[in-house]
């Protein structure tokens, strides 16, 4: 895969950014984007490209979607909300805090273990007693997706009896966001974890082993994005969302392990 941050290119990009800064029109806006923590790398990069194109300044607050939703319900100011599940977006819409959403990416789960400690017996080994499994908490989209996948695995009958119950018994921590989960496997602190495919960042890749889940037990989750009602920069916010859904935005998302918008 071609890396986009070669020295020549980043110099050109910096020059371009500088040019735009110098010639920026008065229309430059400061955008605040609240985004699910699984989007940290992809949206961060999209934001940088978007800023260099438009002269806007985009800032991000990454956290678990449910934390962000709570903050927004309690009056936090932001222009855009990119959630990892519709379940955390729809309530904002019904409370009149957010505009209509559009889906901009999809994601699937994967199982991680530290590179040096593979699962014994493949995915069925998740139920082996004594394994230290960490997952995202029940209120977090990744946690909801994990629960769904576990019950589908259980129903498939391919992973042994009472799979969900035995796997649940191995959970040693329910983390507030999915990036915390990935971090702890990368540090070797846990034996296994459910994370999104997009959480497999370059920094993590050498330290972990991944186990693909069959698509039949791993339905994709869709990410909604929308302009928040309190936004003072609604036009720039809409432009940001258009850029995320543009072929270029989608390419960046795919490079970070997401599936394209449905």
């Amino acid at each position: 895969m071609r890396r986009l941050s070669g020295p020549g290119l980043s110099f050109r990009r910096a020059l371009l950014a500088a040019l735009i800064l110098v010639t920026a029109e008065a229309g430059a806006a400061r955008l605040t984007v609240f985004a699910a923590s699984s989007l940290t790398d992809a949206l961060g990069e999209i934001g940088r490209v978007f800023d260099s194109r438009t002269g806007h300044q985009t800032r991000f607050s990454f956290a678990g979607s449910s934390s962000l939703r709570t903050q927004l319900e309690r009056g936090a100011r932001a222009d855009v909300f990119a959630s990892a599940s519709l379940g955390q977006y729809a309530p904002l819409r019904s409370q009149g805090l957010a505009g209509p959403h559009t889906l901009f990416a999809r994601n699937r789960l994967t199982v991680l273990t530290p590179a040096a400690r593979p699962l014994i017996g493949g995915l069925a080994g998740l139920a082996r007693p004594g394994l230290r499994l960490i997952v995202a908490g029940p209120g977090v989209p990744a946690g909801e997706a994990t629960a769904r996948t576990l019950s589908l695995m259980d129903a498939s009958g391919n992973y042994g009896p009472e799979f969900t119950r035995r796997v649940r018994a191995n959970v040693v921590s329910e983390e507030p966001n999915v990036r915390q989960v990935a971090l702890k496997v990368g540090l070797g602190q846990a034996d296994a974890a459910f994370v999104y495919r997009s959480d497999l960042t370059p920094g993590l890749r050498g330290k972990v082993r991944t186990y693909s889940l069959p698509d039949s037990v791993n339905p994709p989750v869709a990410y909604p994005i929308g302009v928040l009602k309190g936004s003072r920069e609604a036009e720039a916010a809409a432009a940001f969302i258009r850029f995320v859904r543009s072929p270029e935005g989608q390419r960046i998302l795919i490079r970070w392990g997401f599936l394209p918008a449905p």
Binding site: V172, S173, E174
Partner: peptide, 27 residues
């Protein structure tokens, strides 16, 4: 605590961690 010990109800979830995780769903 959150970084080093994780967060599991009845095991490692102390009062501040419980406040944080509850704030995500039910205040």
């Amino acid at each position: 605590t959150l970084l080093f010990a994780g967060s599991l109800q009845g095991e490692t979830r102390t009062v501040p961690l419980a406040i944080y995780s509850a704030a995500e769903s039910d205040l």
